[in-house]
Design a protein around this nucleic acid. Structure first.
Length: 263
DNA sequence: ACTACGTCCTGCGAGC
DNA sequence: TGCTCGCAGGACGTAG
């Protein structure tokens, strides 16, 4: 599940391959999710940016191609066009072919005229690693909703780019039960700090690979070795030694420590 | 308006 | 051993 650190790792590698190049040919899976990939033939890449988990390809006619990798999306230069999970590809003017591979097809590719976003992207919260993400703003945003804290994080509204892995990690580090609905200002500050810590460390480590994630070079990330909560159901808490438990919160698997993260 | 839950999609692993 | 079946999850659609 590519979240902010994985998408950022991909962005950094993709940028030098694409900027200054233009698309000579493209094709895609017929699904509405991917068909927009075909629309950018003849256009050039001016920049490769990221907002939350979205990759933004700024094109030289002022429009943007937006890719969300969903659960299993991968962008791979030189991908074999016979790959059964290839969903889209773009041929560049240097004959390099960039392939979009997505086993589960949860990803999506969209074209927007600049800034005309819709849906989650339109209402995306601030970038967690930027100065726009402040405790004050975070506190106000969380206060406005009565949903569970983890659900709010996954909604992308209070802050952008946090998915299931880093939500569990951040709540663990902040000592917050993910199913709680209200946080004190002090706890909100701890969660704010934890989100920045787990995400920035994961970016430094090139993302987390549990199953599908690989970067543009086909390499796995290294951050899975730094996870202390997610996926460790039944293993001892690194703080208190109690067995970590797994539960379902609003339909999403959630691991936590019953002792360190009290309701 | 807001919250909760179902849906998409396919590979994999648990269990018979 | 080989098969079936349920699970995993981000964003969005729908229902209450």
């Amino acid at each position: 599940m590519p979240e902010l650190p994985e998408v950022e790792s991909i962005r950094r590698q993709l940028k030098p391959l694409l900027v200054g190049r233009y698309v000579t040919e493209s094709n895609s899976h017929p699904s509405d999710k991917f068909i927009a990939a075909r629309e950018i033939v003849g256009l050039g890449f001016e920049a490769v940016l990221r907002r939350g988990k979205y990759l933004l390809f700024i094109l030289d006619n002022g429009s943007e191609m937006i890719i969300h990798l969903g659960m299993t999306g991968q962008l791979i230069p030189g991908l074999d066009l016979s790959d059964p999970h290839l969903r889209a590809w773009w041929k560049l003017d240097n004959d390099v072919i960039l392939g979009y591979r997505d086993v589960r097809r949860f990803g999506r590719i969209r074209i927007y005229s600049s800034g005309e976003y819709e849906g989650t992207l339109k209402n995306l919260g601030p970038e967690p690693l930027s100065d726009d993400f402040t405790v004050d703003q975070f506190y106000d945003s969380l206060k406005r909703s009565n949903r569970k804290i983890k659900t709010q994080l996954l909604s992308q509204l209070p802050v952008a780019g946090v998915g299931n892995i880093y939500a569990d990690e951040a709540c663990f580090h902040a000592g917050i039960y993910p199913g709680v609905r209200k946080l004190t200002r002090a706890k909100t500050a701890e969660l704010h700090h934890s989100i920045r810590k787990v995400l920035s460390r994961a970016v430094e480590n090139g993302g987390t690979t549990l199953r599908d994630y690989v970067n543009v070079d086909g390499e796995q990330g290294n951050n899975q070795h730094y996870l202390v909560c997610y996926g460790r159901d039944g293993e001892p808490c690194i703080n208190c030694g109690e067995e970590l438990r797994r539960t379902i919160i609003d339909g999403r698997g959630t691991t936590f420590c019953r002792s360190c993260q009290r309701r």
